[in-house]
Nucleic acid binder design. Structure first.
Length: 449
RNA sequence: GUGGGCGUAGCUCAGUCGGUAGAGCGCCGCGUUGUGGUCGCGGAUGUCGCGGGUUCGAAUCCCGUCGUUCACCCCA
């Protein structure tokens, strides 16, 4: 099967047997989110530009809405397509604060748009799956653990369809407290510089820390030592403390990060691992505590395929603030590279499990009746388009991946159903026959690289 | 948004020095008209991404554009 196609750069479109993969993943995530009591919502595609651009989000390329019949020189509508689901959600919470029950747990699986240059795994239109919890005034910390666990379960529920994933976790309080503790003049500046560690060599980052971060050689070295710490268990805490920096915020951050790592311990497996990663910073400035990023083994070139964190001040009406914590999974970013490389595809291009053969046009009613009886039992069935030779009707099914062909019995003979993969053909009654469970619906097939 | 590579049949690709387009797979037909796949025989693959330019002549050279991909940037 071919790569995802796009007649417009960055706006991918899938073929039916590719779309099945995305549908399956979305359905699985939704099921897990709902098992955990998250309520589904959908927000409008459009937000006022001042909402989208606040918080210094100027770096995001926003698509702006404009009427086709606008007068020349007329200003745009002041609205743009949302570029993520977190900012619209914060707005939604403020708009509906009087009607929502807090803490409010929601999932949201929707398209988002960014006007950036496309690349593999990076699109102008893409689907994200977000879960967030918000509360009024205060949000208990255990929700930081919960959102990580729920997303981990959702991904784990996909079995081995996706490559192994790593959830890297850090804490803004920890690193800010550390930088403050060593006497850094501008801790937040240090965060943005440290964030470059994955593309610049350590020495270059150290130079930046000294030149732009205003640190001494010794301070820069301490920052790099902190950033090197990575552990799949709470052992990272001792490593941080061995650096002998003291600061109350640092201690809070260590405690919080320990809680997340401990709380997620039971979701660890060979396919999903939670790792404390002290170099993780994330570019967005609204995160105030826990920060997450999801990485997919073997696809490090994609950078993170998901991310999120705790934001204590994203939504506020002036009197009340609505702190939240959430995590987002990049459905398009993850799946389209896998689909495009042929690693994932649907087992068939149509939902039909059965093609009911058509002997001649006069017996179309008979074949239709068979299909209706199958459908009544939940078996997806279609009737052959034309009364071609049965060999061609079988081929019609084979092309689409339909596993069974049904032959209505002629002149009182019993009906027969043929498994076209094995060639086995047996008598069957359309009122009671069902295919093996695996064949009832299209499945997602995984091919090893 | 900046810079580089690539774009030929449904797919993977070849195409020499500029001389008017090929292979494999797949597809269609027939052998076999109510049972596909194997095999045999036959057939069609096409705006050489698109537009313009140079030339007697362009898939080939030049420019632009669109798509794609990589690196920046940024992030899902």
């Amino acid at each position: 099967m071919s790569s995802p196609r796009a007649s417009l750069s960055g706006f991918p479109e899938l073929l039916p047997d590719q779309h099945i993969v995305e549908q399956h993943v979305v359905d699985t995530l939704r099921h897990t989110f709902e098992l955990h009591g998250f309520a589904g919502i959908e927000t409008r595609a459009v937000e006022p530009l001042d909402q989208l651009l606040r918080k210094g989000e100027t770096s995001n390329e926003v698509y702006v809405l404009r009427r086709l019949q606008a007068e020349a020189g007329e200003a745009d509508a002041g609205m743009g397509l949302h570029f993520d689901l977190t900012v619209p959600f914060a707005r939604y919470v403020l708009d509906n604060a009087g009607k929502l029950e807090f803490p409010f747990r929601r999932y949201q699986i929707q398209k988002a748009w960014r006007g950036e240059r496309p690349q593999e795994g990076r699109f102008r239109e893409f689907t994200q799956a977000d879960i967030d919890v918000v509360d009024r005034d205060e949000l208990p910390f255990h929700f930081d653990v919960e959102v990580a666990r729920v997303m981990a379960e959702g991904i784990a529920a996909l079995g081995d369809l996706l490559p192994p994933m790593r959830l890297r976790v850090n804490n803004r309080k920890l690193i800010e407290g550390f930088y403050r503790g060593i006497g850094a003049p501008d801790p937040s500046r240090v965060i943005t510089i440290i964030d470059k560690l994955d593309k610049l060599p350590a020495q270059a980052v150290a130079d930046l820390l000294i030149e732009e971060g205003g640190l001494t050689d010794a301070q820069a070295k301490q920052c790099l030592q902190l950033a090197e710490i990575e552990a799949a268990d709470v052992g990272f805490a001792d490593q941080v403390r061995s650096l002998a920096v003291t600061d109350p915020l640092l201690e809070t951050g260590i405690d919080e990060l320990v809680s997340v790592v401990e709380g997620c311990a039971s979701v660890n497996s060979d396919r999903f691992q939670v790792v404390a990663s002290l170099s993780l910073a994330r570019g967005l400035d609204y995160y105030t505590g826990t920060v997450f990023e999801i990485y997919m083994d073997g696809f490090e070139n994609l950078k993170s395929v998901g991310g999120g964190g705790r934001y204590d001040a994203l939504a506020s009406d002036g009197k009340t603030s609505y702190p939240g914590v959430g995590i987002s999974f990049g459905v398009s970013r993850t799946l389209l590279p896998l689909i495009g490389r042929g690693l994932l595809r649907g087992s068939r291009s149509v939902p039909s499990a059965v093609l009911v053969a058509l002997a001649d046009e006069e017996s179309r009613d008979t074949s239709n009746a068979v299909a209706q009886r199958l459908r009544a039992n939940g078996v997806a069935a279609e009737v052959a388009a034309a009364p071609q030779r049965f060999g061609k009707q079988i081929r019609y099914a084979e092309r689409r991946g339909i596993p069974f062909v049904w032959f209505p019995g002629a002149e009182g003979a019993a009906d027969q159903v043929k498994d076209i993969r094995s060639g086995d053909q047996v008598e069957a009654d359309p009122g009671s026959w069902t295919p093996p469970g695996d064949d009832l619906r299209p499945a997602v097939l995984k091919e090893d690289p």
